[in-house]
Each structure stands twice: as C-alpha cells, then as structure tokens.
C-alpha cells in the first residue's frame, strides 16, 4: 500500500505544476481600452442583453478599464457573442460595434448606456433612444451610417465564429493572456479578485 501511495505522489509531483486550461491566444480584436502592446490582454466574450454580462461590465471591467487599461497595463478586447435566446442582443451588438468604428471613446459611451439601461431596452426593444441619449446628434448620425455598413455585421459574425473555435458556450467568458500563456474563465468575477490576479501578472 505504501508503495502505491509513494508511486502516486511521485508521479503527480513530477508532472507539470500548472495544469490550468490553456487556450490559443491571438485574434484580431482591437483594444477598447489600453494599448495592443500591454503586458496583459483580457478578451471578453459578452452579450449586451445578458444580466451577468451587465454585472461583469459595470462592476468589474469598468474599473479595469479605468485603473489598468488607461494606465497602459492591460489591453481590454470586447467580443460580441449575442445569444439567440436574447431577442435584442444582436441589435445591441451592432450599435456597440458601430460605435467602435467611431472610436473607443464612443464604444465606452454606448456600452455604458446599453448596460446601464439593459432592463429597459430588453423589455421594450427600443435601443435607438438609449444609444442616442449617450451621443451627440452629429455622432449619432455618423453611427447610423456605420450601422448600415456590412463590415459591422461581418465583424460580429467573426466574433461568433471565434467563440465557437474557442469553445465559449456561456457569457461572460474571458481569456487572460500574459507571459505567452492564455487562461480561460467563465462567469462573473469580482473586481477585487481579478485585481489580485492582474497585480500578480504585472509583478506588483
């Protein structure tokens, strides 16, 4: 019996210490916050109509954007994964992606508005007034032009395909890439818990 126990312990100790699931890094998503060369990259697959995504964006990712991305420590990429069970998620994704084409400042304004008023537009399907409330009239008319651009739909389809490729089955799911290694996490993580990991990765 002792021999078996010793063998098991030796076998496990001799294997690689980190057995966390790794996923391929890369992708062509632009940083909605931070710079592409940042030491840490967080790629979030999200659905604007999903309540957990709302919580994750407002309580976790917004502070990450403010405290880490603006300081150039983290590049945050948001990818669209509108779930079919959410009737207005696809349209919301269009608004957000079109806003990205105007600039990341606009993406932030539109995302803030969409997530903050999620319950309202989820119930009545009226997205345009919510988005218009976050932008000036001039910016809104520019956004409408982008909404008609097939490149926006193509980008959303590309994000959905990438989600399938990476076996993302739920939202929010995010990938943290640092030091050449990518880790996958599904679900909502509190800011203070994510912050500990980011500080560890950044060597603080």
């Amino acid at each position: 019996m002792r021999t078996i126990v010793s063998f098991l312990i030796l076998f496990l100790l001799s294997s690689a210490p980190a057995t966390a699931q790794t996923a391929p890094g890369g992708g062509n998503g632009a940083c909605v916050g931070g710079e592409p060369g940042a030491p840490v990259r967080i790629e979030v697959f999200s659905d604007y109509q999903c309540p957990a995504c709302r919580q994750f964006y407002l309580e976790t990712m917004r502070p990450v954007l403010d405290n880490y991305a603006s300081a150039g420590k983290v590049c945050v990429v948001y990818r669209e994964l509108p779930l079919t069970m959410h009737a207005h998620a696809r349209e919301a994704a269009h608004y957000a992606h079109a806003a990205q084409r105007l600039g990341m400042r606009y993406w932030r304004l539109v995302s803030d508005a969409l997530y903050e008023s999620q319950s309202q537009w989820s119930a009545n399907g009226q997205l345009e007034p919510v988005v218009a409330g976050a932008l000036s009239e001039e910016d809104m008319s520019r956004l409408r032009k982008w909404m008609e651009d097939p490149a926006v739909e193509a980008a959303i389809l590309s994000d959905i395909a990438l989600a399938r490729e990476r076996n993302v089955t739920a939202t929010p799911t995010f990938f943290i890439t640092a030091q050449g290694k990518t880790e996958k996490v599904s679900g909502v993580v509190q800011y203070s818990v994510l912050q500990r990991y980011l500080d560890h990765l950044l060597g603080q």
């Binding site: 210490p17 980190a18 996490v185 818990v193």
Partner: peptide, 27 residues
C-alpha cells in the same frame, strides 16, 4: 483529492477566480 488539490496549488489566482464565479462568498 490529491490531484485536485495539486492542480489548484499550481494556479492559486485562477482558483480564486473559479471560487468567485460561484457568487456565494465575499472577496
């Protein structure tokens, strides 16, 4: 049990995030 504990010790911050996703405990 031995294997489960060993894998978690290798990535403590990832395990913190995994526990946090249950949304049952404060930080």
């Amino acid at each position: 049990f031995f294997f489960a504990g060993y894998t978690k010790l290798g990535s403590p911050f990832l395990f913190e995030m995994a526990v946090d996703t249950y949304q049952l405990l404060p930080p």
